[in-house]
Design a binder for these strands. Structure first.
Lengths: 225, 225
DNA sequence: CGGCCCATTGAAGCTCATCAAATCGAGTGG
DNA sequence: CCACTCGATTTGATGAGCTTCAATGGGCCG
């Protein structure tokens, strides 16, 4: 596992779009220093409680971070998609493990390479800071969701997130590449609760589609932001 | 409210301690640009959903950030104490309001002043990045706690946090300056649940003290990290 | 001494977790 | 093409943990 190739691939989901076709990503300047890594479904490439000198940019596919407790409880920290950066913020034992949800392609960097580039490249430095700020805002929204949101709200919020990540432009339909177990551990719910919640949303007409296919309504009607 | 003075005060709870007596904080280089603000109990100085051009360093006292929903539910994002920085990560409408728990003294900066200093001072830039990374790690621990922790675990985790913030050196006893309502909204619980949880911890001997006074045991025995 | 804020305790109900079993769908091999 | 298998989703029944509502008690300040 964790095979390494020399090569590049154009990252999707750019933060800065210069032109519709040729997307520029803030991590691009770092690309030459990155090794491409290809992983199969469920392979774990960051181990909980062990230090890791690496960060990863998702090139394609979906990655999850997960914190496990001794008694089997599990919390998923985030799902990452093409363009996202993983593992920068923790130097030392990693509180969350990271693994591939499906097949993924990653670009691997040493953490210090990022720090070094930040020290010399002001633009990159700003982008990194904005990235961290954004992650922090996102994490805090999730704190409110997990602290005070009902099961239905958590599920709807999750689906909106996925819509934002998985739909091109203003599209509203997507195929969810994530299993219910993972969704449940992401939302702090039981798998059955998620299943029932989704069924309820479908029966009430709040969303459309069936099984792993979702059709979201246009407007964000009162979904905990 | 929100009166402003020119003046300085030595920040407690430094991130970098050069000598025991003369503590140096990473925000110190910014101090000359900051205005001192004194606020009374419960005064709100950042309003939810409204933009704010300012960041604040807590000089003394305790501050809370809170997100409120239309139906009265409320989530507290964090409690901040002397030395902490608030409000850097969000430029634009603030998802969380900020208010004083008791009387507080703050130092106020423009957000752009921080960015400007970061661009010119490498050491400060690094410290800022480490600060953001630390906040992110903290927020993600909280996500696991709120997603999967029981009431008892949340409460114990909160008390440990407070011990870390409020106790000098290795002390284990502290007076909690925060009301149960706020603790409840911080932990995503009902205030009665917090009250009962604390009572249970006391009855079982897991902690000591009474009312707002807490005596923690020495070792961290299985408290969700 | 009275009023107020907050902590505390009790009782009842609801949401969600847990346990168990049925069903579905995608492969896989005969 | 169909039977079989395995992983995943779905549905049902029951119960635990937490919330909610209500009332009491305790400390502090005017």
């Amino acid at each position: 596992m964790l095979s390494t190739y020399a090569g590049t691939a154009a990252p999707r989901n750019p933060v800065v779009a210069i032109s519709p076709a040729e997307a520029v990503h803030w991590l691009d300047p770092l690309a030459p220093m990155g090794a491409i890594v290809r992983l199969g479904r469920n392979s774990e490439f960051v181990v909980q409680d062990e230090p890791s000198a690496f960060c990863f940019q998702i090139v394609s596919g979906c990655v999850r971070t997960a914190m496990a407790m001794e008694d089997g409880r599990r919390q998923i920290g985030e799902f990452l998609f093409a363009g996202d950066l993983l593992g920068y913020e923790t130097d030392g034992p990693q509180p969350y493990a990271a693994s591939a949800v499906g097949d993924v392609v990653l670009r691997r960097f040493r953490r210090c390479a990022i720090d070094r580039l930040a020290a010399s490249d002001t633009e990159f430095d700003t982008a990194l800071r904005q990235y961290l700020s954004g992650q922090l805002r996102t994490a805090r929204k999730r704190i409110a969701l997990l602290g005070r949101g009902t099961a239905g709200e958590r599920i709807m919020s999750f689906l909106r997130e996925m819509q934002a990540r998985l739909c091109e432009g203003g599209a509203t339909a997507f195929e969810l590449p994530i299993k219910l177990v993972d969704v449940a551990d992401y939302l702090g719910l039981a798998l059955e609760t998620v299943c029932r919640g989704v069924a309820d949303l479908r029966k009430s007409g709040a969303i459309g589609g069936s099984r792993t296919y979702f059709v979201m309504p246009r407007l964000a009607l009162r979904v905990l932001h």
